[in-house]
Design a protein around this nucleic acid. Structure first.
Length: 252
DNA sequence: CCAGACGTTGTT
DNA sequence: GTCTGG
DNA sequence: CCAGACGTTGTT
DNA sequence: GTCTGG
């Protein structure tokens, strides 16, 4: 599960990490202060995100979070479906109508993040955690598709986060659904972007429960609100809940 | 045969 | 576009 | 886990 | 009885 992500990095750091340049992404290219501040972005607002695709690995493409498959007929259906395609279960992307075209055509992408959020349940209440690598960039694995708006005729690029069974620290945190986004480190970027990657090889990556070094701490439940405060840097900051069972997880 | 789904896992 | 449910 | 289906087909 | 959908 992954409905909230973070990306607070300037253009140069992104270009260095992913070996791609910005020419397509409006808020990055041409601006004098080419950075964005996505301390917390909810998938349900379908934000534009810079991604690196198999088909154009040398550039950052701008894509909306929430995959809209090419066969969707109208804007209303697209919006409805988009709330349900923030994640794609990695195990079933080859069968699901919404994802199989993307899966069949190796439309995979890297989604740069500084971190993401997962809920921890304790005595019936949900405590959001921020999961990160101490400011080090990394990527989540995604698939994407293109949709052409019937009214506008314009192409709409959009993606889903690939999920797998949770492992390690994330399994401890996400104790209800036990799912996590597929996390990629720099060494794995070329592999995910290899257009010849077989279904078997993708399944292997999904089943690999080794995680890179991760850090996590509980954050304010403000994260769940739909106020401007939920977008502020403070949502990422350490915020001890005072509940031992929850705080203890952060000590890793 | 046609209509409808097509998806994943949140919270206040 | 393609499958499922009725 | 429990509720509900359990079936087929050309219609305006 | 057993499968599917929620």
């Amino acid at each position: 599960m992954c409905f909230n992500m973070s990306l607070v990095t300037d253009r140069l750091a992104l270009e260095g990490e992913f070996g791609a340049v910005f020419e397509q992404f409006p808020s990055y290219s041409g601006g004098s202060t080419p950075s964005i501040e996505y301390y917390n972005r909810s998938g349900f607002s379908h934000p534009l995100w810079p991604v690196v695709t198999v088909q154009d690995p040398g550039n950052f493409s701008s894509a909306h979070w929430g995959l809209v498959p090419s066969w969707v007929k109208d804007r209303e259906s697209a919006l409805r479906l988009q709330d349900m395609t923030l994640n794609a279960r990695g195990e079933s992307i080859w069968e699901k109508p919404s994802f199989r075209s993307a899966a069949a055509h190796a439309q995979r992408c890297l989604i740069p993040v500084d971190g993401f959020f997962e809920p921890h349940e304790h005595e019936g209440k949900s405590y959001p955690f921020y999961i990160h690598r101490e400011g080090k960039l990394f990527a989540l694995a995604g698939i994407y598709d293109r949709w052409v708006g019937p009214q506008t005729g314009r192409e709409y690029l959009s993606f889903s986060i690939i999920t797998a069974d949770a492992a390690g620290l994330i399994d401890t945190i996400h104790n209800k659904k036990h799912r996590m986004p597929l996390i990629l480190t720099a060494q794995q970027y070329p592999r995910w972007l290899d257009s010849d990657l077989s279904q078997e090889q993708v399944r292997q990556m999904l089943g690999d429960d080794r995680l890179p070094e991760l850090f996590a701490h509980p954050v304010s439940k403000q994260l769940y609100s739909r106020t401007p405060a939920a977008l502020e840097p403070s949502v990422q900051k350490q915020c001890l809940t005072g509940i031992d069972a929850v705080d203890r997880i952060a000590l890793r």
